[in-house]
């Protein structure tokens, strides 16, 4: 006979903060604080306890319809199960890469997956150009095609040490270690102590460290 233990109702995809804290740079209290944030994000449009792409875009841009290549890629990487939504466990584990204390190797690998648009295991020249054009478009910057080609060529030849027309993970790692500012976008200082940055979340935190 089974034993039914009554617990407060949690959203689908909810995971034990102790487990998530053990797997990520977050403390248990910080995971609890992230849950408060997650609840808010995941109920902004659809009240189903999961973050849909429109909810992600709404939080990021204050506009649920804003299309952006990089936001799409970040969402897709957060959506580990590839089911079109981000659950709580995916949210915490993915944000963990952006924690200041996350290993640099992990940040480098995450950035590689982000920029490997077609998931071929390589960053291709065409992908790099596509990302540069997307950035120029989102920033309302106009550069001639010749200038864009020159920027892409120069960067690509610096990173593609083997000269085979694609950047592999090893080349990417070496390139980033030489140019560490390239992964500054992989660190969110806010995550260092989210319970201090968002004290209101602590009020409803269930777990004390």
């Amino acid at each position: 006979m089974g034993c039914y233990c009554s617990k407060p109702e949690k959203t689908p995809g909810y995971e034990d903060p102790v487990v998530l804290a053990a797997e990520t740079p977050f403390t248990v209290s910080e995971v609890e604080a992230l849950y408060e944030l997650f609840k808010k994000l995941s109920s902004s449009i659809y009240d189903d306890g999961l973050i849909h792409k429109e909810e992600f875009q709404l939080a990021l841009f204050r506009n649920q319809n804003k299309k952006n290549l990089f936001a799409d890629r970040i969402f897709d990487l957060f959506d580990v199960k590839r089911n079109g939504v981000i659950d709580f466990g995916e949210f915490v584990r993915s944000l963990g890469f952006f924690h200041p204390n996350a290993p640099v190797e992990d940040k480098i690998a995450f950035a590689f997956r982000l920029y490997d648009l077609r998931q071929t295991g390589f960053i291709e020249r065409e992908e790099l150009k596509e990302m540069v054009l997307a950035l120029l478009h989102e920033s309302d910057l106009l550069l001639s095609d010749d200038v864009v080609e020159a920027i892409v060529d120069k960067t690509f030849s610096d990173a593609d040490k083997k000269g085979d027309g694609r950047i592999d993970q090893q080349e990417w790692k070496e390139y980033v270690l030489k140019h560490p500012t390239l992964i500054k976008n992989m660190t969110l200082p806010y995550l260092k102590d989210i319970t201090l940055a968002f004290p209101s979340f602590v009020m409803s935190s269930e777990v004390e460290d």
């Binding site: 970040i74 790099l128 540069v132 950035l135 120069k154 140019h179 500012t181 976008n185 969110l188 968002f198």
Partner: peptide, 25 residues
Amino acid sequence: KPTSMNAFELISRSQSFNLENLFEK
């Protein structure tokens, strides 16, 4: 000079990486 820009540096400035926006109350 634009041609001396690093393409990866450029794309890392996308506003999509402002994930702190997710934390705004």
